[in-house]
Amino acid sequence: MSSMEIDFKQYQLRCQLRGHEDDVRGICVCGSEGIATSSRDRTVRFWSLDSSDKRKYVSSKMLLGHSSFVGPLAWIAPDEEFPEGGIVSGGMDTMVFVWDLRTGEKVQSLKGHQVQVTGVVLDGGDIISSSVDCTLRRWRKGQPVESWEAHKSAIQAVIKLPSGELVSGSTDTTLKLWRGKTCLHTFSGHTDTVRGLGVMHGLGILSASHDGSIMLWAQSGEVLMVMVGHTSIVYSVDAHVSGLIVSGSEDRFAKIWK
Results as ranks from 00 to 15, higher is better:
G91C: 07
G90P: 01
F82E: 05
I155K: 05
K141W: 06
T135G: 06
M92L: 10
L101D: 00
L136I: 14
K141P: 01
I127Y: 00
K141R: 15
G112H: 08
T94C: 14
R102Q: 14
C134D: 04
L110C: 09
E84K: 14
V145T: 12
P83A: 01
V98E: 10
Q114M: 12
E84F: 06
D100W: 03
A150V: 04
G104N: 10
T135A: 07
K111W: 04
K106D: 05
P83D: 01
G125A: 07
S130G: 02
E146W: 04
Q143P: 00
M92T: 03
D100V: 03
A150P: 10
I159Y: 00
G85Y: 01
M92V: 04
I155H: 01
V115L: 04
L136R: 04
S131V: 09
S153R: 14
L122T: 04
Q156H: 11
K152Y: 11
V115T: 15
A154Q: 14
E149P: 02
C134W: 04
S153N: 13
V96L: 09
K106C: 15
L136V: 11
L101S: 05
D93Q: 09
Q114Y: 06
V121D: 03
S130T: 13
Q108K: 13
K152L: 13
A154W: 11
K141V: 08
I127N: 05
Q114I: 08
A150I: 06
D79R: 12
G124F: 03
L136F: 09
E84G: 01
R138S: 11
E149L: 11
E80V: 10
I127D: 08
G112W: 07
Q108A: 11
H113I: 01
S89Y: 08
V120T: 01
H113F: 07
V96K: 10
S89W: 10
V98G: 11
E146C: 13
R137Y: 09
D123T: 08
P144D: 08
F82Y: 15
